[in-house]
Design a protein around this nucleic acid. Structure first.
Length: 358
DNA sequence: CCGTAAACCATTCTTACGTCA
DNA sequence: GCTGACGTAAGAATGGTTTAC
């Protein structure tokens, strides 16, 4: 589990997707449902559709995949639906979303266009290039030397934050996407190993402020459209590629954590089913033994087995089978009489309360 | 069918941190 | 208590692949 970082006050309105999630809980009463696609190869084999609703843990945002059609590939196999009760609803993150605005598809919201919007009010502007670096970057991209100038104590968040924004690539290490982004390219740590003096190592990590802001953004949308990406990059003074990569890695972490949760749940299911199987085997042996000792036992037609309305089990006693069946039939609603085998209730001849039914 | 963009995935690499001699 | 080597977890970044359009 991760600690959530909070920014600003805690009185902000919950995010839209959380409201949606709560509606789902209210309407369906499902807190956790999971489908497993079985029988198909490749990625569909492990296709999982997870909706973990109202979970305060930050790895719960898979529901946001609904925003993006990519993850909606239908499972090829027959899905196995598993449901869990909803977790105790905890007030969703206490973080403020002040200033976090998302550009719509038509670009109506220009979150990053103004220096007064969003993080700059919290001091992100301090991470802009120092004057020397800006000067160096005026005609060309900032050289590694500029980053070396500002390198300071790694324990200082502010200083590292500033440094993060001052590390730029020398200009030849960009990927295709970096090139296409047209942004000043920050150096990767790999490239930075070949420093001028070979002694300094550039910081790779994003600052806490940047990560927190990205985290908040991820809670809002776990995928980005190009405009959102650009706006975030502009707000955080990062390359769009960095924002893209951060979201990709964040989705991967979310998926990994969810997979771990699913694995634990399936393990418990497996244990339960194993126990059920063991119990049924034992029951079958007892029935066979009983049949051997009393050949007339279990000669009743299936239509005489009646569902007990209280425990939803077939009513029966260890007394004379015909009498028990007839009394049970007359004592219950005839509509509960079981005649099919497709949904045949379990038969517990030795106790009214099924094992483990507590 | 082909090209492109976006997302995913596996992997590498860096950094921070804990442990221990 | 301090220090450096070492191991490890977390996260940033990369290249290849898949998928939708």
């Amino acid at each position: 589990m991760e600690l959530e970082l909070s920014l600003g006050d805690a009185s902000s309105k919950p995010f839209a997707f959380m409201e949606k999630a709560h509606r789902q809980v209210a309407n369906k009463g499902l807190g956790f449902s999971m489908g497993l696609g079985l029988g198909s190869a490749g990625r569909d084999q492990e296709e999982q559709k997870i909706h973990e609703v109202a979970d305060d843990d930050d790895d719960d945002d898979d529901g946001e995949d609904d925003d993006d059609g990519r993850d909606q590939r239908p499972s090829m196999g027959l899905p196995l639906q598993l449901d869990l009760l909803p977790l105790a609803p905890v007030p969703r993150n206490q973080a403020s979303h002040q200033g976090l605005t998302w550009p719509s598809d038509n670009g109506s919201s220009e979150a990053g266009s103004s220096g007064n919007v969003g993080l700059p009010a919290r001091g992100l502007d301090v991470n802009r290039l120092p004057s020397t670096a800006v000067t160096a970057a005026a005609g060309e991209e900032v050289e590694d030397g500029a980053a070396a100038e500002v390198e300071s104590s790694p324990n200082s968040a502010a200083s590292s934050f500033q440094m993060d924004f001052c590390i730029y690539r020398g200009g030849n290490g960009g990927t295709k996407r970096d090139f296409e982004s047209g942004e000043a390219e920050r150096t990767s740590s790999r490239a930075s190993d070949e420093d001028d003096n070979g002694l300094t190592r550039k910081k790779l990590r994003l600052s806490k402020e940047q990560s927190a802001f990205l985290e908040e953004s991820f809670k809002e949308h776990n995928t980005l459209n190009p405009k959102q990406k650009l706006a975030l990059a502009k707000q955080l003074n990062l390359r769009p590629r960095q924002v893209e990569v951060w979201f990709q890695n964040r989705r991967a972490r979310t998926k990994l954590k969810q997979t771990e949760v699913d694995c634990e749940y399936l393990k418990r299911c497996c244990e339960t089913l194993t126990e059920e199987n063991r119990r049924l085997h034992k029951e079958l042996q007892e029935l066979r033994a009983l049949k051997t000792s009393n050949p007339f036992y279990m000669q009743l037609p299936a239509t005489t087995l009646t569902m007990c309305p209280s425990c939803e089990r077939v009513a029966a006693t260890s007394t004379a089978p015909s009498a028990a069946a007839s009394t049970a039939t007359t004592a219950t609603d005839p509509s509960t009489t079981t005649t099919t085998t497709a949904n045949r209730p379990r038969f517990y001849p030795f106790s009214h309360q099924p094992p483990g039914a507590s």
